[in-house]
Design a protein around this nucleic acid. Structure first.
Lengths: 158, 158
DNA sequence: CTTGGTGCAAACATTTTGCAGCACA
DNA sequence: TGTGCTGCAAAATGTTTGCACCAAG
């Protein structure tokens, strides 16, 4: 079975990986909570997603999976990506010039800030320390509870 | 000619509207700079865009234009929206749950921050005073020049 | 045996493109 | 007369869905 070495937890049992792979645990818990199953395909896709460097397109992910010898259909990939969004593990990101949706791992609430080079499209994750507090304040002022945020900073070489 | 009363500047001459309608001026200047023309259709679309309350879908815009009696094809609308993006007048925004691209007027660099209710999709423009400075700092640290930013804050009723 | 999962292919929605004719410089 | 613009319809893209079969509890 190709590629089974690096799976982020196995579909049958093995809850002991929970501490090492919290994202996997989150995903499994969310699935279980919805009466859904943590299948081999979903494990493979999760694993591949977690190994993506920064942002990725669905298409890249599918190509990568096939290159590793997995036989997953794009339907399953899209279905699984949606489940991961619901679990708060990834989110979609849009760029003005880019028609296809890109995805980004955001497990938890950080890692949602990006510095994007407008000249070549490169994007790196950044950290703006005071930002979360600012968002918190803002929500309080509106009588709402903060669920998360997303920041994109566009820049080019000076 | 239906609806011609509220056009944001006329296609023939009338540069005196420049001060009153800076967005229109920006658009015209950008077009001229690229050897393109400020046509009646483009004026109509710009006008309609500027009258949109907050965020809008391309489809809504098209429907609105038709409702006002204009006969613009969606091809022209999409082409014009893209030109407006290039001019920095509008930008596309993506929401996780929303498949279609939405657009937002952002002439200049402010108005790019949104507070989005996760329970019903409502979005309002917000202002976070210190944010721009934070972005500026960040870019400087990376040896880049800030081109703009976009913040989405997700929240739900407490 | 019931519920959910998968792959495939067809369907879908949004956006883009090719083309013929039009308008203005 | 050339360059760009428009509408239409066709194409292309990215994503979703219907369906028949498979797998696990």
């Amino acid at each position: 079975m190709p590629g089974s070495k690096s799976l982020t937890g196995s579909p049958s049992g093995l809850d002991d990986l929970t501490i090492i792979e919290p994202v996997c645990a989150i995903f499994r818990r969310t699935l279980k909570g919805a009466g859904l199953k943590y299948t081999l395909e979903r494990a493979q896709i999760l694993d591949s997603v977690m190994r993506q460097p920064g942002l990725f397109h669905a298409e890249e992910l599918i190509r990568g999976l096939k290159a590793e010898g997995f036989r997953v259909s794009k339907a399953t990939v899209y279905r699984t990506l949606k489940l991961m969004q619901d679990s708060g593990i990834i989110q979609r990101v849009l760029f003005d010039d880019d028609d296809a949706g890109r995805y980004q791992v955001v497990f938890g609430t950080s890692a949602s800030d990006l510095l994007i080079r407008t000249d070549n499209g490169d994007a790196v994750q950044i950290e703006i320390p005071g930002l979360r507090a600012l968002c918190e304040q803002l929500c309080t002022k509106h009588g709402l509870a903060l669920k998360g945020h997303r920041l994109q900073v566009f820049a080019a070489p000076a």
